[in-house]
């Protein structure tokens, strides 16, 4: 197996794990997919293109990601719903400094308590990984939503 095939498998495997953790495990383990020092931003294509820095969610530490999950479970009020993530094949690069970066499409369906299933968001994950033993962790994930519209609210992370 070539090195790029191996990388492809590792990043693909990471995405599969991410989807499982965030959709099927109540996102409890979601922060652990990130490095302690990390950046996670949810933004839109229009903001990203315009170089605007603010996000719908902006976290620059794993602690902030943990706080978001705690807030969703303990503080915030929203109608019960779940997501189903479909993550496309990643396009992977290795930067000059050795960092693994990848871009992958995503589609998130939202399934409401009342049964409605709708496409909630589509977009791209712009990722930068760090290696932790044999695992990959996200140093940075910029979630670029294609649409500038969010229906009702964005509670669970993308």
């Amino acid at each position: 197996m070539t090195e790029i095939d191996s990388l492809f498998r590792r990043v693909g495997s990471f995405h599969a794990r991410y989807a499982r953790v965030i959709d099927d495990e109540g996102a409890q383990g979601w922060p652990e997919l990130f490095a302690p020092e990390c950046l996670y931003v949810v933004t839109t294509a229009a903001n990203h293109r315009a170089g605007m820095e603010a996000g719908l969610i902006y976290a620059d530490s794993r602690g902030m990601l943990e706080d978001r999950i705690t807030a969703l479970n303990e503080a915030n009020i929203y109608e019960q719903h779940v997501y189903r993530h479909l993550i496309g094949q990643p396009s992977i690069s290795v930067e000059a400094d050795g960092a693994i970066t990848s871009e992958a499409s995503f589609l998130v369906a939202r399934i409401m308590r009342t049964g409605e299933t709708e496409v909630f968001a589509t977009g791209r994950y712009l990722d930068r990984f760090v290696e932790c033993g044999t695992d990959l962790l996200l140093r940075e994930r910029i979630v670029v939503c294609d649409s500038n519209r969010i229906d009702t609210l964005l509670a669970l992370p993308l």
Partner: peptide
């Protein structure tokens, strides 16, 4: 302006 978002 540092960001724009629309909420329906």
């Amino acid at each position: 302006v540092i960001g724009r978002f629309t909420q329906m």
